[in-house]
Design a protein around this nucleic acid. Structure first.
Lengths: 246, 246
DNA sequence: TTCTATTGTCACAATTTGAGACAATAATAG
DNA sequence: CTATTATTGTCTCAAATTGTGACAATAGAA
């Protein structure tokens, strides 16, 4: 682990980072029929926030997002994409950040870098829930999964950011075939269908779904079958990466 | 006209603007079966660039984009949307900006604000070619339409920005029904089809296209017909804004 | 061995799209 | 005025896709 924290490493003048610009990441996972996202809970404040960070002077923007994602999940090679820039003046509200800084023993100066107006680039990531072990930063009690349906109140405009991220995910699901990034290596057709239904927020027909996905030529059926319940055992499937398709 | 220029109003320390952040706009128009974009040509430099600008300290990001668009076109209420943030370190190349500043009598200091690294938020706009009268800024000889197929060499990574803007337009064309923003108030079905074909870069079947677009319930057929050529006169259509549909 | 829930697949209907045909018609040529 | 020409609006039929339900297969439970 190279680094576990972001905020508190930042000097009061923000030296080493691009000023006024931040990255916020909506990290999606899927578990027990539910879409989840990772949220940080700042110590002793009851404030929840999306994992975020800043861009180093000599860092590519997309690399900064990758780094921030890595710091919270230890994962690399993750599906990660920009989706919107949040740049309204109204999102500038220094109060919660002041509270966080205070609780973490950071000296609050009137023009502390963290209290200025920030414009934030929103990224969303899709990760395999079974592979992620969330790591809080040093200002946070926890970095944990939260059900998308039952989110706590979030800092600033983070609720809007989540909403826009979900909309983007819904739009891109079929076109970019990115749902598989939320699944474990192997899965049944029923599990995959539940993922789609959860993301899209609607029921899908079983036979149409199966026919459609098999016809795309992106699934490999694995000979083995799953066991455990009192009915015919389903096949397991694996997603075939684009490069391996014929 | 409130303001006609951007760059040269900026003080060497960039006071009044958010540091390190810019907006670049890809302004699309359609004329004589061709997609066009607006480009600035900087005086005596042979350098072409997308219209761009900076964000004021107290300005919403999206409002900055609207303002920049207005400064070049005098248009308001235009379809304008973010599509990507260009934040690679490699895009920082002060040489062309130095040339522009020199030719425009702006004093070049080592740490002039304009020569720092910028991250740029890309916006694309769709406007009615017949309504736009491009206005150069004071550093530019011209602000003029250029055929998307025959662009001059562009500054920095502006070629990539245009490419990404076009890809976004192609993806959103059907989903958001935004093509009409490129058409005049009334148009024939053949004209509309040519627009779609040009944007998508492929031929479409006439009867399928007509059937599809009529079935969407977004076109109002106007009683009058156009005249002028030796064949049956086509109907004229008008796009029905969402609020007026039933 | 029988029962139950779920799976993989098929058949048929409904819908959408592809592809072409045809009559209507605004100007033009004679 | 009439014949010609190019394009338009619409229709038909075929092909492809999707909706809908049915059915046999089967892993475990009763």
């Amino acid at each position: 682990m190279k680094e576990q924290r972001t905020l508190s490493l930042v000097a009061p003048d923000g030296k080493g980072y691009l000023p006024g610009l931040a990255v916020d990441t909506v990290i999606f996972g899927f578990h027990e029929y539910q879409l989840k996202i990772l949220l940080l809970e700042y110590k002793n404040t009851g404030l929840f926030a999306l994992p975020g960070g800043f861009i180093k002077d000599e860092e590519n923007l997309n690399d900064a997002a990758k780094r921030i994602l890595f710091e919270r999940t230890s994962l690399t090679d993750v599906y990660l994409e920009q989706f919107y820039v949040f740049g309204d003046r109204s999102r500038h509200d220094p109060a919660p950040m002041q509270a966080i800084m205070q609780k973490n023993g950071i000296k609050i100066t009137d023009n502390h870098w963290l209290l200025q107006r920030f414009i934030s680039v929103g990224y969303y990531a899709l990760i395999d829930f079974t592979k992620a072990f969330p790591i809080p930063d040093l200002m946070s009690d926890s970095c944990a999964w939260h059900d998308l349906e039952y989110l706590p109140n979030l800092m600033q405009d983070h609720q809007d950011i989540v909403k826009k991220a979900l909309e983007t995910l819904q739009i891109n699901l079929d076109r970019k075939l990115i749902g598989f990034n939320l699944m474990p290596e192997t899965f049944t057709m029923a599990e995959l269908q539940r993922l789609y239904e959860t993301i899209l927020g609607e029921k899908l027909r079983r036979s149409s779904f199966q026919r459609k996905l098999l016809s795309l030529g992106i699934l490999e059926r694995i000979a083995k079958k799953k066991t455990g319940a009192a009915h015919k055992a389903p096949y397991l499937y694996r997603f075939i990466p684009e490069k391996d398709r014929k």
